[in-house]
């Protein structure tokens, strides 16, 4: 636990083509918007950003809303062509990513522009038909 009051505290350190955000405190349904807003404004301010590092050494509790916001951040970075790094993960975060089968997905290299748009068409309002068509083209496999 940190000595900070409950809540989320962010420190953003940016260099030429890298942004690093240090996260201190709980990432839960009360605080997730803070992180998403910070990431969104960094991505908006720096088109062509190569790497976004989220630094988790000081994180407290992370719940399912916390994971949901990481998935949303990944969606935004992938669209911007930025690679997402989840650094200094404590055991509780690793466990969450492991059980939910999201570690590989969140930390994979960003797709190229073409792949990005293809990914988006796959996420377009689906029908059973497109779902079956889309499935074999999936890029990764966890099995």
């Amino acid at each position: 636990m940190t000595t900070l009051p409950p809540g989320l505290h962010l420190v953003t350190i940016d260099t030429q083509d890298t942004v690093r955000i240090e996260i201190t405190g709980d990432l839960d349904y009360q605080t997730v918007d803070l992180l998403l807003d910070e990431v969104t404004s960094q991505l908006d301010a720096r088109p062509g950003l190569k790497d976004l590092h989220l630094h988790f050494a000081e994180i407290g509790i992370i719940d399912s809303m916390g994971l949901s916001v990481l998935l949303m951040i990944h969606r935004r970075t992938a669209a911007a062509g930025t690679r997402l790094h989840l650094d200094d993960r404590p055991p509780n975060l690793n466990r969450l990513l492991d059980i939910t089968g999201t570690l590989e997905y969140l930390t994979a290299a960003p797709p190229t522009g073409a792949a990005t748009s293809q990914q988006h068409t796959e996420q377009a309002p689906p029908t059973a038909g497109t779902a079956q068509a889309a499935r074999p083209t999936g890029p990764d496999s966890t099995t």
Binding site: G101, T137, G138
Partner: peptide
């Protein structure tokens, strides 16, 4: 058993 959560990833797999 292992598998991906549902509702977000473009594709999910499970064992």
């Amino acid at each position: 058993t292992r598998g991906n959560l549902v509702g977000v990833l473009p594709d999910v797999h499970a064992r």
